[in-house]
């Protein structure tokens, strides 16, 4: 179903012609997709605010000021200060910086590994497929948080462990998605044509299949980044994430929890920041999905 093959278009011929061009046109009109645009704008603002943190606030995120602990929100301290006198708004911006950076880097390796393995499994089938899919079954047998927490524990807390843990767990979803897409796409005429033209398997996958199936992986990546941010924040909450005093939203929520009854803002705002990031990425994912499947909600 294309967006342009609507009833009411004059004559069957133009309608058909329009339908044939619907896909590229939809791709060109991405900026008119409301969900995608609002998601991109929102994410842009967040990333900009996090990147420009040193310009937006005069405070140092790790400098303690024991004369100004647990201050209420004011014009000088927009969200007040924490138990050792650090400005909460400043730590929020720098925390976003830490967590966004880790999440966006962490998603790259699983994306590449999962896409590569998934397309190999889908295209070649046979024992490659069997072995890989059994491996996927085994990894998904573990609850996501349990495996991430266990892996970070054995590898030792810190950023490097987070990357390794997320890669070891995260590639399976991409492998599954891409394998499914390749299984369908490889029966299409253009792939058969490429194959009968004598192109090698590697070339068909890289030049013909991947460009057509990668969108699904990109759409999934949006929700995957959200999941990774949640994992990073959760690890931080348990003290297994980036070591203090580096600002991180999870450890901020954990610190604030002790002062919940008197200083609710310390816990609430770091969490809200995560929700807004999640909203932006979900909007982008939904918008992208609508672009390639117009009409499907």
């Amino acid at each position: 179903m294309s967006a342009l093959s609507l009833p009411g278009l004059p004559g069957p011929a133009p309608a058909q012609a329009a339908a044939e061009h619907a896909a590229p046109r939809a791709a060109r009109r991405w900026y008119r997709q409301p969900a995608l645009m609002s998601g991109l704008v929102l994410l842009g603002i967040i990333v900009l605010a996090a990147a420009a943190a040193p310009l937006l606030t005069p405070y140092n995120p790790i400098a303690q000021n024991l004369n100004a602990t647990l201050l209420p929100p004011s014009a000088r301290h927009l969200l007040g200060t924490d138990q050792i006198g650090r400005d909460t708004f400043t730590r929020l911006l720098y925390g976003l910086r830490t967590d966004l950076r880790i999440a966006f880097i962490a998603v790259l390796l699983p994306f590449c590994i999962g896409t590569a393995l998934g397309s190999l499994a889908g295209y070649f089938g046979g024992w490659v497929d069997t072995v890989l899919m059994r491996l996927v079954d085994i990894v998904v047998a573990f609850p996501f948080y349990v495996l991430i927490i266990a892996l970070v524990f054995v590898l030792g807390p810190g950023e490097r462990s987070i990357y390794i843990a997320i890669t070891l767990v995260g590639w399976v979803s991409y492998a599954r998605i891409i394998r499914g897409e390749v299984l369908v796409a490889k029966r299409q005429d253009y792939v058969l044509a490429a194959r009968s033209g004598g192109l090698s398997g590697a070339r068909i996958i890289a030049r013909h299949l991947l460009p057509n199936v990668i969108t699904q992986a990109i759409i999934y990546a949006m929700s995957d980044i959200v999941q990774d941010i949640l994992a990073i924040v959760t690890l931080g909450y348990f003290g297994l994430g980036v070591p203090p005093p580096t600002p991180d939203l999870g450890s901020m929520i954990n610190d604030g929890q002790n002062f919940l009854t008197t200083h609710w803002q310390l816990t609430t705002f770091p969490g809200l920041a995560v929700v807004v990031v999640g909203l932006a990425l979900s909007l982008i994912g939904d918008g992208l999905a609508d672009l390639i499947r117009p009409g499907a909600a």
Partner: peptide
């Protein structure tokens, strides 16, 4: 859209 980004512990 809002729910997916909420940290469960929060």
């Amino acid at each position: 859209l809002l729910g997916l980004g909420m940290p469960p512990f929060w």
